[in-house]
Amino acid sequence: MLSDDEDIPVVDRASLGRVIAVANGKGGVGKTTLAANVAGLAAADGARVLAVDLNGQGNLGLDLGIRGGQADDDGRALAEAIADGRPLAPVRSVRPELDMCVGGTSVGHLPALLSNRYQFQAERQALMLAVSLQQVAGDYDLVVIDSPPENPPLQQLALAAARWLVVPVRSDRASIHDGLGGIARQFALVRKKVNPGLELLGVALFASGSSSRAIRREVRHDVEEVLGAGAPMFEAVVRHSEAVARQSRSRGLLVHELEQAAAANPAFWKLRTGEASRDQVVTATSASVAEDMAALTREMFGRMAELEGDGQ
């Protein structure tokens, strides 16, 4: 829990104006998928992007294809930089124009490390990612932070460093009330204590059968029960495909990259004759999911530009 501190580090909020935290209090709602693909799409469009994996599971590294490789230090460099207040030292060029701070077990231990080092300085603890990030943020057009579920101290680190919050949700009522309710409490706390400029950019729906208008209306109703009337939701909806999710993560490909790989699928006759394996086939559904993800990303950037233009 954040409390009043005397020794609060100075944070240059202008340098963090293009930092997006992707967060939800519940797991399995599409946080890492959204963070990885938004970062990848922005980089593919020519923006300089930094992706920060503030999760002890390190799944962002799986989605970007570096988990278990030479660049994977299990979050040690990220955790040490935050604890010391030093500049982040990202892995360079995991994709063209895309750098990454790797997560993992060391990041999971970060709350205990910060608590021991900065005892009774809860606000300082919450601001340490912002302190480290502001020293490198000028090198990037966009920073995307993937945060963990059910870990308030790490969520506070992400929210305290961000200008914008994006919350992915599933369509089930329990997921919205539990997950969205949890991150809403952290959002309100961080805004009050250390980051009054933090804004909710929007809630994004990840759901099977997402074309159903009835489901969208029900989700909006449930979201407004938690956040209040007029809570911002994105119109674009990313449909869920288990095949796309599994193939993307197992191959270390983003959804638009998986779509491109589908163009090289072996001919059906090669499968029938055994010249090619079913394991080589990329699901055709990747095209639809890639289109959804691109639409959501465009809407996110459009809304961010609109709000920036309004001076928010």
Rank of each mutant, 00 (worst) to 15 (best):
residue 273 T to W: 08
residue 66 I to S: 02
residue 97 E to P: 00
residue 76 R to Y: 10
residue 203 V to F: 02
residue 73 D to Y: 08
residue 128 M to I: 11
residue 163 R to F: 12
residue 131 V to M: 09
residue 213 R to L: 14
residue 254 L to Q: 04
residue 129 L to H: 08
residue 9 P to M: 14
residue 72 D to N: 00
residue 63 D to C: 08
residue 57 Q to H: 04
residue 133 L to F: 07
residue 7 D to M: 03
residue 109 H to K: 13
residue 49 V to L: 12
residue 26 K to D: 02
residue 127 L to E: 01
residue 173 R to K: 12
residue 115 S to G: 08
residue 13 R to V: 12
residue 134 Q to F: 09
residue 211 S to T: 15
residue 167 V to M: 09
residue 75 G to A: 08
residue 123 E to P: 00
residue 130 A to C: 03
residue 162 A to I: 09
residue 85 G to W: 05
residue 198 L to Y: 03
residue 84 D to C: 06
residue 91 V to N: 05
residue 81 A to T: 01
residue 231 A to M: 04
residue 193 K to V: 13
residue 308 E to L: 11
residue 277 S to L: 11
residue 20 I to A: 02
residue 46 G to D: 11
residue 270 K to P: 04
residue 280 Q to T: 11
residue 104 G to S: 07
residue 238 V to I: 15
residue 78 L to T: 11
residue 152 P to K: 06
residue 11 V to A: 03
residue 48 R to L: 11
residue 71 A to R: 07
residue 267 A to F: 03
residue 36 A to E: 07
residue 143 V to R: 05
residue 45 D to A: 15
residue 12 D to Y: 06
residue 86 R to M: 15
residue 53 D to Y: 09
residue 250 S to N: 14
residue 84 D to K: 05
residue 1 M to Y: 13
residue 52 V to T: 05
residue 303 R to L: 11
residue 120 F to L: 13
residue 73 D to N: 10
residue 184 A to I: 12
residue 18 R to T: 09
residue 256 H to K: 10
residue 1 M to T: 15
residue 79 A to F: 10
residue 17 G to R: 10
residue 91 V to W: 03
residue 90 P to G: 09
residue 261 A to M: 02
residue 134 Q to M: 12
residue 190 V to W: 06
residue 76 R to P: 02
residue 231 A to R: 01
residue 210 S to K: 08
residue 273 T to K: 09
residue 281 V to P: 00
residue 162 A to Q: 01
